[in-house]
């Protein structure tokens, strides 16, 4: 008997006794028994046959169309800034623009718009790593930064401000910062003119408080 015939008969649920006998006695088929059994369970599982909504395709296409292309940030490196003129410059932050982190975030905080951006709202998710924090900002209601300016995301404690990087198009933005939220609990976003000044401007747009 042909192995494929016996296996396909088993999968179809209509195997004859000689076919079942073959599956039990043929060493090749016995090796495949687990895969055959799992596959038959997959086919019998009603959830396997559930169809997605007909609109899902359009939603996928629209979502990709509406998401800005990841681009290299214009000012990739910013150093620690302290209003008191502090040290610790080695804690500099580098923006990274890669795929989203794969696991659930370690923390998540809301970041509402200030009176400068009352329609803005957002959520910041963070992944703690041994040398810093990977953050993903999901922002709504904040217009793209005007020409000659960029948004900048800060981790702060008192007057100590660490930049996590800049972005022009607020949507879903992934950044990296070399500090932890435990040490720098205040998260906020300013609108910065593109200049040499690396301190936060007074244009506070969104703030976790």
């Amino acid at each position: 008997m042909n192995c494929d015939d016996a296996r396909s008969a088993f999968l179809s649920g209509a195997a004859s006794q000689p076919e079942l006998d073959h599956l039990g006695s043929c060493s090749d088929c016995r090796n495949e028994w687990d895969a055959l059994e799992t596959s038959r369970q997959v086919l019998e599982d009603q959830s396997f046959w559930v169809e997605p909504s007909p609109t899902l395709e359009d939603r996928v296409v629209a979502m990709i169309g509406e998401t800005p292309q990841p681009v290299a940030p214009p000012r990739p490196r910013r150093w620690l800034w302290t209003l008191g003129g502090g040290a610790a410059a080695a804690l500099g932050a580098i923006a990274v623009w890669a795929g989203l982190p794969s696991t659930a975030p370690d923390w998540e905080v809301a970041i509402p718009g200030t009176s400068e951006a009352p329609d803005a709202s957002g959520v910041v998710r963070g992944w703690n790593e041994w040398n810093g924090t990977r953050v993903v900002l999901d922002i709504e209601g904040l217009p793209p930064a005007p020409d000659g300016s960029l948004y900048e995301f800060w981790f702060s404690r008192d007057e100590l401000h660490i930049s996590a990087g800049t972005f022009a198009a607020p949507d879903s933005v992934e950044l990296w910062v070399g500090v932890s939220k435990a040490d720098f609990p205040r998260l906020w976003i300013t609108l910065e003119p593109v200049d040499e000044d690396e301190s936060p401007s007074g244009n506070n747009m969104m703030d976790s408080g």
Binding site: S47, V50, P52, S53, L56, R59, M63, L100
Partner: peptide
Amino acid sequence: GRAVFTVAYSSLRDRGLAEEAVQLTFLHAW
């Protein structure tokens, strides 16, 4: 797309969540 949905639905057993996972899959892939 249909196969991505199958992976998501057979593990999550919820259409809304599975469709969200499909959208995330295509976004991450993109």
